Computed example of a mutant assay.
Amino acid sequence: MSLLEIDKLNSFYGDSHILFDVSMRVEANEVVALLGRNGAGKSTTLKSLMGVVQAKSGTIRLDGRDVTGTAPYKLARAGIQLVPEERRIFGSLTVHENLVLAAMTADKPLSFDAVYQTFPRLDERRRNRGKQLSGGEQQMLAIARAMIRDPRIILLDEPFEGLAPLIVRDLMRVCKGLAERGHTIVIVEQNVHAALSLAHRCYVVNNGHIVYDGTPEHLRTERDLVEKYLGVKT
């Protein structure tokens, strides 16, 4: 039994059908990359898993338990954390206050020391307000805020978007560290090479359909598929 199983998920925005019979599985301690062009349905998949977008049909199981239609706050308590593309940190609060707020509703939060050891840059800026941080620092805070709740699964939506290469490198190091410590991660990312370097397995989405399910190593050999659906030449 997989930690997370999605079976024939169909999601809509209003009358627009976005996801078509999407099926996926995520094993414990695994990093899964969800790849595809803009508008392919990747972020909608994460939002459907988090209950932000309610699926019209299909099943979502966490540890074998049906959680389809469960409210986002209940899924968060069950151990799923979404780091949204918009980050949504509290700009008027300090770094530390953002973390305190996230930890307050967690059953067994990680220590602040553990989080700051993972993000030394945030440790240096713990008294800075969220709006005073750079884009990369805000992304670190968004991930740290999820991490402090010690979730079973972290959903990362475009964590490297719009960031300088040096910041992407730092965040890659953090994500690899989280994976090595056994965190289960589902990552949506336009930076295909970065995502594949992190992932154990990957899915490719096109127009709301899963068109590939396999390992990064095998995907790299599928040059026509990579160029057609991801716009990347290998």
Rank of each mutant, 00 (worst) to 15 (best):
N10A: 01
S11K: 00
F12K: 04
G14H: 14
D15A: 14
D15T: 13
D15R: 14
S16L: 14
H17R: 10
H17F: 11
I18W: 03
L19V: 02
L19T: 03
F20S: 01
F20K: 15
V22K: 01
M24D: 05
M24L: 15
R25N: 13
E27H: 12
A28D: 05
N29Q: 15
N29R: 15
V32D: 07
A33S: 15
R37P: 01
R37E: 08
R37C: 03
R37Y: 07
G39E: 03
G41Q: 00
G41W: 00
S43L: 00
S43M: 00
T44C: 00
T45H: 01
T45K: 02
L46F: 06
K47L: 12
S48W: 00
S48F: 00
S48Q: 01
L49R: 08
M50E: 09
G51A: 05
V52E: 05
Q54W: 07
Q54T: 14
S57F: 04
T59I: 13
I60Y: 03
R61A: 10
R61H: 06
L62K: 10
L62S: 11
G64D: 03
R65M: 07
D66C: 09
G69W: 00
G69C: 03
G69S: 01
T70S: 05
T70G: 01
T70E: 04
A71T: 13
P72R: 13
P72M: 11
P72H: 11
Y73V: 08
Y73P: 12
K74T: 05
K74C: 02
L75K: 04
A76P: 07
A78S: 15
I80W: 09
I80Y: 09
L82E: 07
L82R: 05
E85H: 04
E85Q: 06
E86R: 10
E86Y: 02
R87S: 09
R88L: 02
I89H: 08
I89K: 07
F90I: 06
G91T: 02
G91C: 02
S92C: 03
L93K: 12
V95I: 13
V95A: 11
V95M: 10
E97M: 08
N98M: 11
L99I: 11
A102V: 09
A102R: 12
M104W: 10
T105P: 09
T105G: 06
D107K: 07
D107R: 06
L110F: 04
L110W: 06
S111R: 13
A114N: 14
A114F: 04
Q117L: 08
Q117Y: 03
Q117S: 15
Q117W: 05
T118C: 14
R121C: 05
L122G: 10
L122P: 14
D123W: 12
D123P: 00
E124M: 12
E124L: 14
R126A: 10
N128F: 09
R129E: 08
G130A: 02
G130S: 07
G130Q: 06
G130H: 06
Q132K: 08
S134G: 01
S134N: 08
G135I: 01
G136C: 01
Q139D: 03
Q139H: 05
L141V: 10
L141A: 04
A142W: 07
A144K: 09
A144T: 09
R145G: 11
R145W: 10
M147W: 09
P151G: 11
I154H: 07
I154C: 08
